[in-house]
Amino acid sequence: MNFKFKILPISIYVIFFISGLLASGCNMSDEIDIDVPDQVADIIVEGYLTPGNPIEIAITKNNFMDNELILQSIWNSKVFVTDKKDTLVLLNIFYSDRKRNILVNYRTDSLTGVFRGNVLYLSVVTTGNDTITGITQVVSPIRIENATIENDYLYLTQSITGDEFTGYLRIDMSAYRADSVFFVSSRNLDLSKSKSLKVKLPVSTEIQESDSLLVRTFHITKEYYDYSVSLNDASNAYFDPFLTPEEIKSNIFNGTGIFTYYTKDEKMIHFSKTE
């Protein structure tokens, strides 16, 4: 017993000392000057078309690693969106659409949803005569039939009107407490195998009685799903470069980005937690 009382406190002290060093080592980081690999210039296009909103597209340049971190807008390009019969010309206006929470620089006031055919085409010609094109499928409207929360999970039942379900959804959740948002989540779901529109998602365990949850479901294209997943994987690789880096899966030819059409529906749930 004497042995135990004499030796153990010392060994525990040593162990804690070393553990502290190990833990401190886990946070060791320092600035370093490196020669970054050859940088490649690119044009980034992001256009999210959805019924009830004007066609809005952001066309920018990518940033080199040593550039200032600002949105580098591309000006004076000729931008067209074409359906089966008509072509719309977009104007070069730089503004922030607060309702949709995006910054865009090309727009037309023609509302989407009046297009004919199932496919839309994008064409961009820059002042440097670069031609960038994109194509998207027009997807069918989606509707939330039922949304409930049980045991920290959201159970969502949806329906599609019109044509076929693409098999891909984006589901956003925003939890409100006293008019302020304290939880936000956005998930892209691949349901292409099951084609089921019943979804179960975890919600924040911090939600309490009297909180509200805004659920928004988006019927999206496969191209948009792939783009979102590859962005997420690329960002993860950014923080851990030992990950296999992902190339951005873009549907923009001669550039990078996404030109897509989605439909959406939303529902507010007043939370009642079930134990």
Binding site: D38, D42, A58, T60, N63, D172, P245, T256
Partner: peptide, 16 residues
């Protein structure tokens, strides 16, 4: 592997 550039991405209709 290091990135050869970055870009600023926006998600459409997000509540963040």
């Amino acid at each position: 592997t290091l990135p050869t550039s970055i870009f600023i991405h926006q998600t459409g209709d997000i509540a963040a």
